[in-house]
């Protein structure tokens, strides 16, 4: 659907997703169902090409019985929610101190050059995007990146080559199983 405007009535949550949302809501006391919002948004984003459009956010508000603004204010606060379309495979390099001392800057440059993009840009085929993010809590396994739900650690240029090839071949798992 890319950048085209999606109409609210076009937003469909799959049966599986709705079941999961109901399960997550059941974890919180009556009248406190909003607590499920952050987890629900992750699940919704996973099902909507990794980003949250306004109609999708409105739908989340409807499902949780809260106001749309309550969803927007959360989405704009947390860095893991995307408000714009992203590449299919987003390499989120940790660039904080420990990874920086272990050469992540070289690796980001290498990856950008290899893919022919600048930081945060999506490749023309929509496949890849390179981002720098703050500490991911894998300092002892630096340099590293996050791809979907998973970490790729002790990276080298060779490992980056292999990872990119694997992504192109569709061999890389992005989501952890429920």
């Amino acid at each position: 659907m890319a950048l085209a405007e999606i109409k609210p009535e076009q937003v469909v949550f799959s049966e599986k997703l709705m079941k999961r949302i109901e399960e997550l809501k059941s974890h919180f006391p009556e009248g406190r169902k909003k607590s499920a919002l952050i987890t629900v948004l992750h699940e919704v984003q996973d099902e909507h090409e990794d980003w949250l459009s306004v109609p999708v956010m409105d739908k989340v508000a409807e499902v949780l019985g809260i106001k749309p603004i309550e969803v927007y204010e959360v989405v704009t606060f947390y860095s893991m929610y995307n408000q714009k379309p992203v590449g299919k495979y987003v390499f989120e390099f940790c660039r904080t101190s420990c990874c920086a001392t272990r050469g992540v800057e070289d690796l980001m440059e290498y990856t950008c050059q290899k893919l022919g993009v600048g930081m945060n840009e999506v490749t023309p085929d929509g496949m890849f995007q390179v981002k720098g993010v703050e500490c991911l809590g894998a300092c002892g396994y630096a340099p590293m990146l996050q791809l979907g739900d998973f970490y790729h650690e002790f990276l080298t240029k060779e490992k980056m080559d292999a990872l990119i090839d694997d992504c192109r071949a569709g061999k890389v798992e992005k989501l952890s199983k429920v």
Binding site: S35, A36, I38, T39, Y78, S79, V133
Partner: peptide
């Protein structure tokens, strides 16, 4: 339950706010 990328949520009252959605 989980957060979504915010260091500040490690502070206990921010964590509680986040847990409340």
């Amino acid at each position: 339950t989980c957060g979504a990328g915010a260091y500040i949520c490690g502070e206990e009252t921010a964590l509680i706010e986040s847990l409340e959605g």
